[in-house]
Nucleic acid binder design. Sequence first.
DNA 1: CTGAAAGCGCTTACAG
DNA 2: CTGAAAGCGCTTACAG
Lengths: 348, 348
Amino acid sequence: MTRPTITDVANVAGVSKGTVSRVLNDHSKVSDSARAAVHDAIEQLGYRTNVHARSLATGLNDAIALIIADARDQLFRDPTFFELIEGVRDGLAGTKTNLVLLMGGTEAEDRRTVAYLDAGHVDGLIHLNPYLDDPITEGLAGSPLPIVFCGPRPPLALPGRNWMVTIQHREGVLQALAHLDAQGAETIAMIGGHPRGVSAEVRHDAYREWLGDRYDAELYEPGDYSSESGRDALKRLLDRRPDIDAVFCASDRMARGALEAIRNRGLAVPDDLLVMGFDDQRLAAGTKPALNTIHQPIRQVGRTAIATLMAALSGASPPDTVLPTTLVVRDSTGVKTEKSRSTTTPRM
Amino acid sequence: MTRPTITDVANVAGVSKGTVSRVLNDHSKVSDSARAAVHDAIEQLGYRTNVHARSLATGLNDAIALIIADARDQLFRDPTFFELIEGVRDGLAGTKTNLVLLMGGTEAEDRRTVAYLDAGHVDGLIHLNPYLDDPITEGLAGSPLPIVFCGPRPPLALPGRNWMVTIQHREGVLQALAHLDAQGAETIAMIGGHPRGVSAEVRHDAYREWLGDRYDAELYEPGDYSSESGRDALKRLLDRRPDIDAVFCASDRMARGALEAIRNRGLAVPDDLLVMGFDDQRLAAGTKPALNTIHQPIRQVGRTAIATLMAALSGASPPDTVLPTTLVVRDSTGVKTEKSRSTTTPRM
DNA sequence: CTGAAAGCGCTTACAG
DNA sequence: CTGAAAGCGCTTACAG
């Protein structure tokens, strides 16, 4: 009782293998009677096509991979990735393309992931968030596989066919800082993202740009997007610079941690310190006070990434996409009434 | 500049395709000179083997799948799955077997996942937590693929070759209840797991068994493992039965929610109510008061699952595995000093 | 130790 | 509309 092949189907249906293959692949030029006979035979035999044979013959897979650089840090801890993947799944609904999730993190896993991709199991891939020094991206440098990055391109040798779907990181940061400024903040610190991340760097650059001459390295503290890192970073910032009156965090989770640290010091938000997050994750609405933040359309990034990849696979030349961010105003930057706004020049 | 094949390598190395294949597959009987020539040619050409051709010839994939029934609920919200997957990754370290994560949830995704498996992309699979009515398991009923379940077998038609790696759910529940009993609890409610889950049912049964005649449906409230569901369930329990003096929760997250609900009512733990969790997740040590719970060696489940699958793939007949749970004592069930223990018979 | 050849299960021009 | 045949890139007895 070995698995039936196309030859078995052809025999039962009384046609040739070629005809069976044609009905399998929906070629138009097949007689109704042949088509019916083949379908009957398939049903009767429980035939299912062998993907390896088909892929060998066609060179296609009908499958794409989702790469996550560090499963431990990203996939399981950061809701952003959940949204991203949901967006990708949205985009795949209704197609017959398979999605496989490949996880890096350790050296062995990175290597295995590259090997899997190299081996030709998939037609293309989406990289959810490459690192500045991403070993998986690096391993794919010579690959002919089309790849779309969710986020800015890393400064590495890239595969020849690559696209980018990202958000306006720089503009988002400027929006946040301008808002804090407008609310009367004078000494704005920043808690940045994971130093390995490409977008963390872009955001740091935007912060530096906005501050210009007033940029002070003491006011910047890197985190890793987690709540704990935000809490710890804020403590360090306050130890160094008790004069800061606002902090911009590169994720809502870090902002939540910052709120906690501020509370622990006996300080109040927004009375003593203004706080802004980034992401507009669900938690942002639930903190006390509710978090002002920069909304990024993360699910749409996922959807657009898949659309871009599918377009590339069908031979088109899709454009890169940069999605806009929006300011979300809640309670964590309430106006400081006693302060005069007349001396500060609004920016942007 | 089409991708080089084994024939190209053979030509460059001056040997036959058979010899190239033999060095590729580490067959012992190859002369050193031939081996060296082949390796040189591979390097020079940048040859990489075409997996489809190989799989077609051998029927093997060197890949296994991890199935997650509901990505939305499980993968991204429940740290248990993170631990499980980490265990699987532990077990794969050092092998060349690839791991692909397949996600179900919507009808389309379930169907696609089954199709992917059916198509023969992998050699076997690990199902992280099947539902009682799991559509993916159902779809695999006739499949020859070996499958290992992390958790009790669902009551469905199963693939012929299947194994189970689980924990002592029943014993764990009995441990928890016996502990609450020993601490003086007299009316013990339970907040159960997701009604679709196989293990939730097993735990509910154990609760019913332990209570025997005293079982009262009013004391049982299902949740979905989330913190919010624990909070809401406890509210409902307390509304119905203000007399309960202990609650056993089928997950630490639900126990955390229960603690919150209790606090919101102005009640105290353990003074007014004893609370126990299940899982021993990281959060259990951080709640206030710190949570008593039942530790389950979840990462080891993952490791054992992969070992079981690998054994099955190599033709062995590995046993099912049932791992023990242990009671973890912290602060949420502190002895109720004023109560006499003399009238209650300890159990187990 | 190694070559020639058959075979894995499909697809796809090519004729008709 | 359909059959016969070549080809996709490997592996593996079978001889030697």
